[in-house]
């Protein structure tokens, strides 16, 4: 336990001193601000463009924006935030393999599974902290400007998306222990994400795919119900646990 804590502490020190932590916080904060900002600016942009639009024969009605506009933006933008997160943290294992920094720790008797656990933990905390920070900021602005009450199933739907992020984190861990290079992690994670997305295009299989959780914006308007997610949710949780657990024996047997 002591060694697990020590290694986790080292991970945090690395995140902090390399500047990644700060950068992630800034990025998620900006995404959080962007959602209500875009919503707020939409009518203004329309007004600016109204004249030229009318000239070209389009009818411009006054647009009304509310919390729904902002939350729609949230779900539109959060994939971007996840991609930035993956790009920034995809080398969390591989840079240690490539530089050889793990060799010293492991020959000192640090068990390999603790490396997997510590890094998975750090990734989970970073994603969660960033995600909920982004959510919190959007929520705060929305309730200041408009009324969050018009949105249905808000907490449930953002939790779905958060869980999808955890699924991607699990993929990062799994592909990290299997490959030596950063590109392997990115290709693997991207490939599987694309695959589960493609599954959602098949109506029969869609409810079972983790990528179903990405579409949880449909819950806000009541277009879908919570029940529509009751298959994808447990499946994703199980896949996350299985993925991290599978990483451990792979890590134990890989050559350094």
């Amino acid at each position: 336990m002591k060694s697990l804590i020590a290694f986790t502490k080292k991970e945090w020190m690395e995140q902090l001193r390399s500047g990644r932590l700060l950068l992630l916080l800034i990025i998620f904060t900006l995404f959080g601000i962007m959602n209500p900002a875009i919503a707020k600016l939409t009518p203004w942009i329309f007004e600016l463009m109204a004249d030229s639009l009318e000239e070209s024969g389009m009818v411009v009605t006054t647009v009304t924006v509310d919390a729904m506009t902002s939350w729609t933006q949230f779900f539109k933008n959060i994939p971007m935030a996840l991609i930035v997160f993956v790009l920034m943290e995809s080398s969390i294992f591989t840079r240690e393999y490539q530089s050889g920094t793990l060799v010293l720790a492991l020959t000192k008797g640090l068990e390999r599974y603790k490396v997997v656990l510590a890094k998975s933990f750090v990734l989970i905390v970073l994603w969660s902290a960033g995600y909920w920070l982004c959510f919190g900021i959007t929520y705060g602005y929305n309730s200041y400007f408009w009324d969050n009450g018009i949105v249905q199933n808000l907490l449930f739907s953002v939790t779905c998306w958060w869980l999808f992020g955890l699924f991607v984190v699990m993929l990062m861990v799994l592909f990290s222990v299997m490959t030596d290079a950063n590109t392997g992690v990115l290709l693997g994670t991207g490939g599987v994400t694309l695959a589960v997305y493609l599954i959602t295009l098949l109506p029969k299989a869609a409810p079972f795919s983790p990528a179903k959780l990405m579409g949880s914006v449909a819950l806000l308007t009541g277009a879908e119900e919570k029940g529509d997610y009751y298959k994808a949710l447990p499946i994703t949780v199980v896949l996350c646990v299985v993925g991290v657990m599978a990483s451990i024996p792979i890590q134990n047997n890989r050559r350094l």
């Binding site: 060694s3 804590i5 050889g100 060799v103 010293l104």
Partner: peptide, 22 residues
Amino acid sequence: VPEFYDFMTPSEYLTFCGEITG
């Protein structure tokens, strides 16, 4: 070619090594 966590000072690194060995 020893590779260390180069964001640490020597003293921090040795402390880290001591902690992971219990």
